[in-house]
Simulated assay, not measured.
Amino acid sequence: MALPGGQIIVTDELAELAQTADALAGVLAHEIAHVELRHGIRRLARVAGLSAVVMLMTGDVSSMTHDMGVLGAGLLDLGYSRGFESEADARGAALMRQSNRDPETLAVLLEKLSERSASGGPSWLSSHPRTEERAQRIREGR
């Protein structure tokens, strides 16, 4: 994962799942794209802005109305987050191509990760687009 300050964290489990240097390069390219595109900072600013709007609308940080507003703001942010993931996938695949690596390795690794985590929840509650869509876009060069 890419942190707002630009640091990238790769877990031992992910490195093991990647199995090849190219697959790991795909994940790093995706995370580098998040840093290049300033997704972490932009998301923090959006969440802060949404929270401020909710507080101004409800006028009371401790009320049930405020809690419901925060929940709604969180759901709005999920769509924004899915957009960031799609952008990072596209830029990561482009970085892979620029370094003469096959973006297919990133698509395959995303599918492996999806099989491991299979949440089964509705896609509109996810912070990431559906894996099938992500893999297809990477394979099509979008």
Rank of each mutant, 00 (worst) to 15 (best):
I32S: 00
L14A: 09
E31M: 09
M68Q: 14
G69W: 01
A45G: 05
L50Y: 13
L24E: 01
E16H: 11
N100D: 11
Y80M: 13
R97D: 03
A21S: 14
R82W: 14
P122N: 05
R97W: 07
A135W: 04
S114D: 12
Q7R: 14
A52K: 15
A52L: 15
M1L: 11
S126R: 15
D102K: 06
G6I: 13
G5T: 11
A135Q: 07
V35Y: 01
S127W: 03
G26C: 04
S81W: 03
I9G: 03
L109T: 03
A45H: 01
H39T: 06
D12Y: 08
R42M: 05
G26V: 02
L24I: 06
Q98R: 15
D77Y: 08
F84V: 02
E115H: 06
R91G: 00
L106E: 00
E111Q: 15
R91S: 02
V70A: 12
D77K: 11
A52F: 15
V35Q: 01
R82E: 11
L44S: 06
L113S: 06
E133G: 04
L44W: 00
L3S: 04
D77W: 07
T58R: 06
E31P: 03
M68G: 09
S62E: 12
Q98F: 05
G49N: 10
I32F: 04
A23F: 07
D22M: 05
R42D: 08
E31G: 04
S119G: 08
G74F: 05
A48Y: 10
L50A: 08
L28P: 00
A73E: 07
S126C: 11
L17V: 08
A118V: 07
G59A: 07
L24K: 03
L3F: 15
P129L: 10
F84S: 02
A88E: 01
F84L: 13
E133T: 15
G92S: 12
S114T: 01
N100C: 04
Q19C: 05
V108R: 15
A21Y: 04
